[in-house]
Structures are given as C-alpha cells and as structure tokens.
Write a protein that binds this DNA or RNA. Structure first.
Length: 286
DNA sequence: AGATCGCCCTGCTTGC
DNA sequence: TGCAAGCAGGGCGATC
C-alpha cells in the first residue's frame, strides 16, 4: 500500500528517469486508469503528445509531472496497487498495464502505469498559481513538507469532534498518512486510535507529529535502498520497511516494547493494530 | 456543514 | 475439491 514514503521513492525515480524527456506518444490500455480525466482517454493521450516533462512534485500521496510550456500537469495517484515503472521497450507488457508513455529520445525506456485494482490513475489538470493541480487544492501539506504548520494542525485537532486516527487519515488535515503509518505512529506515541482529538494537549500533538515524521523518514531511508534502475518505484507494497513495522499486521505477536499481545480491531471497514497496554483506550465519558 | 457511510476493484487467503 | 466469503483499503460522492 503506497503511502507517503513509497510515493516519494517513486517521485525520485521519475525525477531521475523521466524528467526532461519529451512525450512521443501515450497509450491508454484501460479507460478506468484515466477516469479522473473527464475529457476521456483519447484527449488525455492527445494532450501529452509533444510536451516535455518537468521535475515531478509530490504532496501527500499525490504526485504530478508538469508539462513544460503548458499550465498543466499529469496528476498521478497510485491508489492501492498502482506502480509507475520505467521499463525497456522490449519488456513484455505487465498483466495489469494500464497506460504506456513513449518518449522521443533514443533511450530505450518507456514509462508504464501498472495497476491491478485500478484504485489509482492518471489525469491532466490545470495548475493553481501555487503550481499544484487544481483538483488537489484541498489536500493538506504533508508532515515532511517544510511549510507544514504544526500549530495549525494542533488547533484543527482541538476544533474537531472526532478521534485521532480518523484525523490522521483525513487528507485535508494532514496528507500522506495511510492506515499503516497511522498505526505505527500511534504505537510509537503510545496513543490509542480512538482518543478524541479534542483531548490533545500541544505536547501530545507535537509528540505524535514527531513520531509520524520519524516513521516516515525511516521507511523512506529503507525504500531508497530498494531502488533499481529499471524500476522507478519499489514494489507497490511496503518495500523493505515491512520488516520494521511494530504494530501494523502484528496481531497475536508480542509488543516489542512491553511484550503484551498486539490486537487487531475492525475499524471503518479496515483494521487497527495496537498494543492494549501501551495504548490505553480512552475513558468512556457518559 | 461537518461527520460518516458505501462504493469502486481484483487477487490472495480462509473456511465450510 | 470447489466455491464463496473475507480481506486488503484511498478517495470521493452521497447522505444524515
């Protein structure tokens, strides 16, 4: 499941292998992969043709490739299973290949969007004056963004009548955090996933943000080592970092801090993993 | 109007 | 053994 660290690894790969190349031709093999491009697959392909790719950017789990000499960008979201791969022309088509982009230069590689579950996709959008695609203007800055405002995040938490994990997954409050890194950061911060956001003190918020950043930076460091010149990204899963997870996916295993058995609880049609001793449930108020 | 729910999608795993 | 249910889950539109 690509979250911020995995998407950043992809962005870096694109910067190295795709930036500054000119599109010769784009081919959409599955219309659902470009469903956010309202004008349709043919329009998407047509508009890419002949344009040079700029330096890729990222916010949260979204990344985009500016089209030079236009005021537009190719927006990409990997969803659950999406991959952006740089492959030799001769590599056989992947089973779930959705979009192919060929370039005008003599390099023997092309860009491929491969996505089994098709939750992800590519689309073309106008940029806002800030240079980000207009359709993601509502996505908050992510915790690795130098302009992320910790104080504003704390105030937003205090205003909300919600619980902390919902807030961490709310991409309009803080972006880039998914189910895995939410559980990991909460475990590190010793906070239960259902703690009401209104109970957060400033030190607790800042501590949690610190753990969010720590776990993402650790994952990013490991993701970098799995980089391969053929593959722009990792493998679409958690990369090598899954070996370092302390909570997510560890139901029935001992907490690495206190030895108590890690629990899994159904939550919002997914799962929350936590240590019942380190992460005490909030007191129920009548 | 903010919070919550349901749907989209496929392949692997689990259980009867 | 075979089939079906369960599970993975981000984001967005609909609903309360």
């Amino acid at each position: 499941m690509p979250e911020l660290p995995e998407v950043e690894v992809v962005r870096r790969g694109l910067e190295r292998w795709v930036a500054h190349r000119t599109v010769a031709e784009a081919e959409v093999l599955h219309p659902r992969a470009v469903r956010r491009h309202v004008a349709g697959a043919d329009d998407f392909a047509h508009r890419l043709k002949g344009h040079r790719i700029g330096v890729p950017s990222r916010r949260g789990k979204y990344l985009w490739l500016p089209l030079e000499d236009t005021d537009q960008s190719i927006l990409a979201h990997l969803g659950m299973s999406g991959q952006l791969l740089v492959q030799p022309h001769t590599a056989p088509d992947e089973k779930h290949l959705r979009v192919r982009v060929r370039f005008t230069d003599a390099l023997d590689t092309e860009l491929r969007f491969v996505d089994q579950r098709t939750f992800g996709g590519l689309s073309l959008h106008d940029n806002t004056p800030d240079g980000l695609p207009d359709v993601i203007a509502h996505i908050a800055r992510d915790p690795l963004d130098e302009f992320f405002d910790d104080e504003a995040f704390h105030r937003a938490l205090r205003r909300k009548r919600s619980t902390i994990k919902r807030a961490l997954l709310d991409q309009s409050l803080i972006s880039g955090v998914g189910n895995i890194y939410a559980d990991e950061a909460l475990w590190r911060a010793r906070v239960h996933y259902e703690r009401p956001t209104a109970t957060f003190t400033r030190p607790r918020t800042l501590s949690l943000l610190g753990h969010v950043r720590d776990v993402m930076n650790s994952a990013l460091a490991v993701g970098g080592t799995s980089f391969d010149s053929l593959y722009v990204n990792v493998n679409g899963e958690s990369g090598y970092f899954d070996r370092s997870l302390d909570a997510y996916g560890r139901e029935g295993l001992p907490c690495r801090r206190c030895g108590t058995t890690i629990r899994r609880r159904p939550w919002m049609n997914r799962s929350s993993y936590y240590c019942p001793a380190c992460q005490r449930p909030p007191r129920i108020t009548p």
